[in-house]
C-alpha cells in the first residue's frame, strides 16, 4: 500500500460524465473570477472617482468585499461542494469570532483609549 501511494497514475478514473461536470465547474469558476474583477473595479471606481457619496462609500465597498469573500470561499475554495460540512463549520465560526474581535479592539484602543 505504501508504494501505491507514491505511484503516479497513467490515466484518470473519471467517466465522460464526470469530465463534463468538472469542465462545467471550471467554466463557472472562470465566470466567478469575472465577477470578482468587476466587483473590484466597482470598489476602486467608487472610491477613486468619488461616484458614491461619502457617507455611503464605506458600507458600499465593505458590502462588495463581503460578496467577494463569499465568491472566494464558496467557489474558489469549494465550500459549496458536498463533504464540506466541517470546513463550513470551522470557517463560519471563525468569521463569527472576527466581528466582536474587531469591534472590541476598535472600541478599546480607538475610542475609549484605556
Amino acid at each position: 500500500m505504501g508504494e501505491n501511494l507514491s505511484q503516479p497514475f497513467e490515466k484518470s478514473s473519471m467517466t465522460p460524465e464526470e469530465i463534463r461536470k468538472i469542465n462545467r465547474e471550471q467554466r463557472i469558476q472562470t465566470i466567478a473570477f469575472g465577477f470578482m474583477i468587476a466587483i473590484t473595479l466597482l470598489a476602486f471606481i467608487a472610491v477613486g472617482a468619488d461616484v458614491v457619496p461619502g457617507s455611503f462609500a464605506i458600507p458600499f465597498i465593505l458590502g462588495l468585499a463581503g460578496i467577494q469573500l463569499f465568491l472566494q470561499l464558496y467557489y474558489f475554495m469549494h465550500l459549496k461542494d458536498k463533504d464540506h460540512g466541517w470546513p463550513n463549520t470551522f470557517i463560519v465560526s471563525g468569521i463569527v469570532l472576527v466581528i466582536p474581535t474587531i469591534v472590541a479592539l476598535m472600541l478599546l484602543i480607538g475610542v475609549t483609549k484605556y
Partner: peptide
C-alpha cells in the same frame, strides 16, 4: 490534512481579525 487545514484557516481568520481591529483602532 484537508480537515486540519480548515481548522488552521479558521484560526488564521481570527488572528488577522486582531490585526485588523488594531489597525482600525489606531488608524487615526
Amino acid at each position: 490534512k484537508f480537515l486540519g487545514f480548515w481548522v488552521f484557516l479558521a484560526g488564521e481568520t481570527t488572528m488577522f481579525a486582531t490585526f485588523f481591529g488594531t489597525y482600525l483602532g489606531l488608524r487615526n
